[in-house]
């Protein structure tokens, strides 16, 4: 089950990168806020149809769900807002890499303490090494991107 979930999530990451390229192209002509609005609207439309036919959960339970769980919707907006502020000052590559670093570190911390009632997975030596390899990989991505942009300039 675990491996299946990892593959599923890898696909989620793949679709996310396709989304950022597509949205990047669209936003050059339409604007950032407009692009995000369109993304959310079309996503809502798609999910409305999907849930009507295949939904097995209980959407009305939303009204009884604890408010802290509902507040997660603002975190996505926060992500967007902070990214939009950071990009013009430090560049797309640095923003993405810093963002990923924040995502990884907090992800491991949430696991370690089991925050939000999630699984408790201790931060052991293997996980610290995994984090180290992710940092190395981010460093190489930074170098690799810097080199290609230097080549383009030259």
């Amino acid at each position: 089950m675990g491996l299946f979930m990892i593959i599923f999530t890898l696909i989620g990451g793949i679709t996310l990168s396709a989304q950022s390229s597509i949205n990047g192209t669209f936003s050059r002509k339409a604007g950032t806020i407009e692009t995000t609005l369109l993304t959310f609207l079309t996503g809502t439309m798609f999910l409305t149809i999907f849930i009507l036919f295949f939904g097995s959960g209980n959407i009305l339970a939303l009204l009884e769900a604890p408010k802290w769980q509902l507040s997660a919707a603002f975190l996505g907006t926060m992500y967007l807002l902070f990214t939009v502020i950071a990009v013009p000052r430090i560049g797309v590559i640095a923003t993405n890499i810093a963002g990923i670093a924040g995502q990884l570190v907090i992800g491991l911390i949430i696991d370690h303490f089991g925050w939000f009632n999630s699984l408790v997975i201790e931060l052991d030596i293997k996980r610290v090494f995994a984090l180290l390899f992710m940092v190395i990989s981010l460093y190489f991505i930074y170098k690799g991107n810097k080199r290609t942009s230097d080549d383009t300039v030259a």
């Binding site: 975190l75 996505g76 992500y79 950071a86 640095a94 670093a101 995502q103 992800g107």
Partner: peptide, 12 residues
Amino acid sequence: LALLAGAALSFE
């Protein structure tokens, strides 16, 4: 801010 943006995704 960029770090916090990423952290927001994990919290989400």
